[in-house]
Each structure stands twice: as C-alpha cells, then as structure tokens.
Amino acid sequence: MAFPNVYTHRKVAETKPASCDICFKLSSSVLITSDNKDWFYICPSHLKDTGFCIPMIDRAAIEERKKQELEAEIERVKQEYEEKQKKKKDKASADSAKKDEADGKKNKEDKSGEKADKTQDKTEPTQGEGTEPSSVDDEEPRVFELKNTFYQQRLNRKRQAEIAKRHRERMKDPNLFPSVPKNLPS
C-alpha cells in the first residue's frame, strides 16, 4: 500500500492541463512515483520551493557528464594545436623554397603572407568558442523527494481512497444487510 517517496517530474500535453494539488491553478506538470501508484499535478513553481520537496541529484551522472565534456574539450584543443603545428611546418617549407628562388621577391611575399596567415589564425579560434558546453547546474532536476508532511498527506489520501472503495464494494453486496424475516412471529 505504501509507495516510495521518490517522485519523477513529467510534463503532460499543454492542451490537457489539470488543477495543481496545492494552489488549484491549471498545470501541465505531474509528479509520479516510479511504480505509478501515486501521481498528482503540481505547478513548476512549487518544485522550486524547498518547503515542499527536495530535488534528488544524481552525483554520479553529473560527474560522468563533466568528465565527458572535459574529454571533448581536450580533444578539440589537441586538434587545434595539431592544425597550427601543421601550418607552421608548411609555412617553414614554403619559406625555404622561396629563399632559393629570389631574395628580393621573398621579402615582399613574406610580409603579405604573414598578414594573411595572422588574419586566418584570428578567425579560426572564434569558430570553436561559440560552442560552449551547457552548464549542469542550469538543468532542472527531474527526481524529487517530498517533505515528510506532504508525503504523509499523500499516504493518507491513498488510504482513504482505498477505504472508500472497499466500503462501496461492501454496500453493493446483498448479504451485507439483514434479510426480511420469513417466519411469522409467534
């Protein structure tokens, strides 16, 4: 009969909202237990209230996500570094080939080539800077634990509903009430 005090936040269709259990405003957010024994509509603002519920944060998942983001960032930086080293080698081989051709022409071409390379180097890092990983703290938690008073209210409401159901079933049973006496009184 009892259910765990672990609720998952889910959204329902915006066209089918129902009243919040706390403030009775229309809401499309639902808190539901993992075994689907209990669920109720709730406003998203109540989920941020620490007097109502506590978000349960999965520390292992957060650490794993941070680790993956760090590895991706390291890989990106390594690729950028390798590209720059490759450009430097290409430039050095091109410079040595130009030295052999002509000293007078080399000075003019080097200056214009360096200016072009500098402008290309400046544009490349800005492409990677725009893709910053999203912060884990910005995400809304999905799993909550109700405060003890609200959890007890949910348990009491479930118990009362089961008692009412049993009572209705008993009332439908014809053997519940006494029957009319069949013998005449003597």
Rank of each mutant, 00 (worst) to 15 (best):
M1I: 14
A2F: 09
F3D: 01
F3E: 04
F3P: 00
P4W: 03
P4M: 07
N5V: 03
Y7M: 06
T8I: 15
R10A: 14
R10C: 14
A13Y: 02
K16R: 03
A18T: 03
C20Q: 03
I22H: 01
C23G: 03
F24K: 14
L26P: 12
S27K: 13
S28G: 04
S29C: 15
V30I: 13
L31N: 08
L31M: 13
I32D: 02
T33D: 13
N36G: 03
D38K: 12
W39D: 07
C43I: 00
P44G: 07
K48C: 02
D49P: 01
T50Q: 05
C53R: 08
I54Q: 07
I54P: 00
P55D: 06
I57P: 00
D58F: 03
D58L: 04
A60M: 06
A61M: 06
I62C: 09
R65W: 11
K66H: 12
Q68L: 06
E69I: 11
L70V: 06
E71H: 01
E75F: 08
V77W: 03
E80D: 15
Y81N: 05
Y81I: 08
E82H: 08
E83A: 14
E83T: 09
K86E: 08
K86G: 04
K86C: 05
K87H: 09
K89I: 07
D90G: 12
K91L: 11
K91N: 10
A92F: 11
S93D: 15
A94G: 07
D95V: 15
K98F: 09
K98C: 08
K99F: 14
D103N: 07
D103F: 10
K106R: 15
D110M: 04
D110L: 04
D110E: 10
K111Q: 11
G113Q: 12
E114M: 09
E114I: 07
K115R: 01
A116L: 12
T119M: 08
Q120K: 10
K122H: 10
E124M: 10
E124N: 08
P125T: 07
P125S: 08
P125N: 06
Q127G: 03
Q127V: 14
E129R: 07
G130E: 14
E132Y: 01
P133L: 05
P133I: 12
S135N: 12
V136P: 07
D137C: 05
D138S: 05
E139Y: 03
E140M: 12
F144Q: 01
F144W: 04
E145Q: 13
E145L: 00
L146A: 01
L146F: 04
K147R: 10
T149V: 09
T149H: 12
Q153W: 05
L155P: 03
Q160I: 08
Q160V: 07
Q160K: 10
A161T: 13
A164W: 02
K165R: 15
H167F: 14
E169I: 02
R170C: 03
K172Q: 03
K172C: 01
P174N: 02
N175Q: 04
F177N: 09
P178Y: 08
P181K: 14
N183T: 13
L184E: 13
S186I: 04
S186L: 04
